[in-house]
Design a protein around this nucleic acid. Structure first.
Lengths: 157, 157
DNA sequence: AACTGTTGGTTCCTATTTGGAACTTATAGT
DNA sequence: ACTATAAGTTCCAAATAGGAACCAACAGTT
């Protein structure tokens, strides 16, 4: 199976990764959350080649994660902004960065520290259930298959 | 810059993605969290080619996310298990899948539903600050640069 | 003893994608 | 007329992926 057909699978994770799971794409999103909006700024900060960046921005736009809007008319210039849907990916970025802070920091420590404005402490984010407010651990989650795909997803588990 | 050199950047997200940011790798991890441990099971469930799978499992093992352990001696056979470090990636998987459930589900609904055992409700996970217990929104986070890389990370923001 | 199956890969070849650099278009400023 | 800016596109060589076949080391069956 080709990676480009991965969005055909009955799996929300696979469909999500079809949009944002490419190499470079999550780094593009990192920069979006830092306020970067323009092509050349992305290109210089990431060091990615221009046509790969062009392709990733197009996929993110088609996927509804970014919005391509004109910021001037003559000459016509566009910039890329996170949509509401895109902003909902923030927890993913935070957890990925936090994991790197904890496990991959070198001798100089983590490059960035995130602080929680409300309490002023360095942020240690964790999963919380929005219904009961409890912290959620992997073993606290029970998975149920949609009857439509019965037996196709949880095979071999 | 080549993708394979991305781990040299002073960015925890980039370093994390150097290990798990490849195409297919997060789907391998999805299956790990579903209990899959063996090469052929990964291969059949993912549909990925065998040499790509071999490469990704090697990178995950070298990165400390998976542990390659022998489960029988004659003939020698290995399986791949999540390390403690690997298990800490669970929030990433949950948020990615949840985002797909919300935005990419087709007419038949989400393929899988995750329930929180403690309260029995379908899980809607959110970020929580472990210090004060508050829910964390993107705007609640203040970023501070490590003095060692002063001016190199937050440029253009 | 000879076949068949299982498991965890490796090898081979072709097709696609990436990295790097140069080029393009449309315009503003000097 | 020349230079600069912004957002790409085009070109080519090099790296990576997809697909299929092959391999090693055994176990079980005929």
């Amino acid at each position: 199976m080709r990676w480009q057909d991965i969005d055909q699978q009955p799996c929300s994770l696979a469909r999500t990764l079809a949009i944002i799971g490419d190499n470079w794409t999550l780094l593009v999103l990192r920069d979006c959350f830092m306020g970067v909006r323009r092509f050349d700024d992305f290109q210089q900060r990431l060091g990615v080649t221009r046509h790969v960046l062009s392709d990733r921005l197009r996929k993110l736009t088609e996927g509804g994660v970014l919005d391509k809007v004109a910021y001037q008319e003559r000459p016509l210039r566009h910039e890329y902004r996170l949509t509401a849907m895109g902003k909902e990916l923030y927890p993913v970025i935070v957890h990925l960065a936090q994991w790197g802070d904890k496990h991959l920091a070198g001798e100089h420590g983590a490059p960035l520290t995130r602080y929680h404005r409300q309490c002023g402490e360095p942020l240690e984010a964790q999963l919380q259930c929005s219904h009961c407010g409890d912290v959620v651990k992997p073993t606290d989650i029970r998975v149920e298959e949609n009857p439509y795909w019965k037996g196709q997803i949880l095979v071999n588990c």
